[in-house]
């Protein structure tokens, strides 16, 4: 999961301090793994260096926690590209996909598109496995079947999420 992109996505709703970003990230996406402060600030300095965020004010007192960061136009483009670039199909993707869907909803983008491109990427991987299975021996078939069932499970979660986008949008709005 790309922490940098997630932070950029959160900055699209308005400038924030590093601490504030960590708090919102942990609330939305960090259920099991909250972000470390060090990770937030190292990510922000990388985004700053790459021109994807800029400082938008420093409160008196100094120190990195006093700086506010805002997303730049280049940052917005970067988030937009990331949201519609499918994740490499592999099992246990839900955390990255969930983050993308929530950020798409928060920024008023087409969350269905996020799911559509991922479905396509998954099906492309599954077609490759089906082809390999048809040419392979029984061992190949069993190995491919294992991967196919896992990818299918991801897709079932994706379809359920697609069906619940309206509900999720309301929750994100709150």
């Amino acid at each position: 999961m790309s922490i940098g992109h997630a932070l950029l996505g959160l900055l699209e709703t308005g400038p924030r301090h590093g601490y504030d970003l960590k708090r919102v990230y942990d609330e939305r996406f960090g259920h099991d793994r909250p972000l470390a402060y060090g990770q937030v600030y190292s990510t922000l300095s990388r985004l700053l260096r790459n021109g994807l965020v800029e400082e938008s004010g420093v409160e008196p007192g100094g120190g990195p926690e006093r700086k506010r960061y805002a997303i730049t136009d280049a940052g917005v483009t970067d988030v937009a590209d990331w949201l519609v670039t499918p994740e490499n199909p592999q099992i246990y993707l839900q955390s990255a996909l969930y983050t993308k869907v929530v950020l798409a909803l928060m920024s008023g983008r087409d969350a269905e598109e996020v799911l559509d491109v991922q479905r396509s990427a998954h099906l492309r991987a599954m077609r490759g496995l089906v082809a390999r299975k048809q040419q392979g021996d029984l061992t190949d078939q069993l190995i491919c079947d294992h991967a196919l069932f896992h990818l299918e499970a991801d897709l079932r979660w994706l379809e359920l999420t697609a069906a619940r986008l309206g509900e999720l949008a309301k929750e994100v709005d709150n």
Partner: peptide, 26 residues
């Protein structure tokens, strides 16, 4: 089909939602 493992036998997929078709070109 609503089963991904069955759709994986196709060359491409088209998704229907609320009576409208969506397709993705990767």
């Amino acid at each position: 089909t609503h089963e991904a493992r069955v759709a994986a036998y196709s060359d491409r997929e088209v998704v229907v939602r609320d009576g409208r078709t969506r397709q993705v070109e990767l």
